[in-house]
């Protein structure tokens, strides 16, 4: 049976996202269209995936006077998200204890800059999946900065992670069309430490807040 990818003239092939292989990735790095820094070991670039390491900056949620993480504007910023997170740093080789059901914002050790037509799909390396940590995220074409990852331990016991260990991987896909990541204002730019959610800057929330006020005659 013919698959989309095996059409003889390649016309359909060009319309679907192609995963980039090791050769493609190395070529992009070579012509400086893709930046991964630091790349401590060349073999982080596998046949179809690139391994990324756990960085040394973390944001952990803390219990404070906020009753919840408020992803709305309906409380007049009474419960700012930022105040529910606390920063903590480690050194390379140190460890970070991830408690059951805890979500921690971390970032990759590597700073990346993706080409304008390449996006990345992230997943945990299988060794870490087996311990009970999962992530799932997409990095947009043209993104630059350390990759933010939200680590959640779905196991029932704490997991001790080593800073600098390769814990997650990215598959790079050709997006077919070239986009400009910086065509519109970006909330996250050149981040090197994890940043608490800026969800309250979403324009949508502003509109939804107006609707809520109108509906409730506020």
């Amino acid at each position: 049976m013919e698959t989309l990818l095996s059409k003889p003239n390649g016309s359909l092939q060009n319309q679907v996202s192609m995963i980039l292989n090791k050769e493609d990735v190395n070529k992009l790095i070579g012509n400086k269209k893709l930046v991964i820094s630091p790349l401590l070991e060349r073999d982080q670039i596998g046949e179809l995936t690139i391994d990324f390491r756990l960085g040394y900056n973390f944001l952990v949620t803390i219990h404070n006077n906020n009753p919840f993480l408020d992803a709305s504007l309906n409380n007049d910023d009474k419960f700012p998200l930022k105040s529910s997170f606390q920063e903590t740093r480690r050194l390379l080789g140190d460890t970070f204890l991830l408690h059951p059901n805890q979500t921690v914002l971390a970032s990759s050790l590597e700073y990346i800059k993706l080409p304008q037509n390449v996006y990345a799909v992230l997943s945990m390396r299988s060794s870490y999946l087996r311990m009970g940590i999962s992530i799932s995220a997409i990095v947009q074409p043209g993104y630059c900065g350390c990759i933010s990852i939200e680590l959640t331990n779905i196991n029932t016991i704490p997991i001790n992670l080593t800073i600098g260990a390769a814990i997650f991987q990215a598959r790079l896909y050709n997006a077919n069309a070239t986009t400009n990541y910086f065509a519109k204002k970006r909330k996250y730019m050149c981040q090197v430490r994890p940043v608490a959610s800026n969800v309250n800057d979403d324009n949508d929330l502003k509109e939804l807040n107006k609707i809520w006020k109108n509906n409730n005659h506020l």
């Binding site: 630091p38 900065g145 910086f182 065509a183 204002k185 730019m189 981040q191 090197v192």
Partner: peptide
Amino acid sequence: NIGFDLSQVKVYEILNNLIEKSIGNFIV
């Protein structure tokens, strides 16, 4: 190729991030 005006605080943030990461990468 940035399509919007960079505010001073954004430049401040970017520069500090990039200096920090340049040093951090050298250490690592």
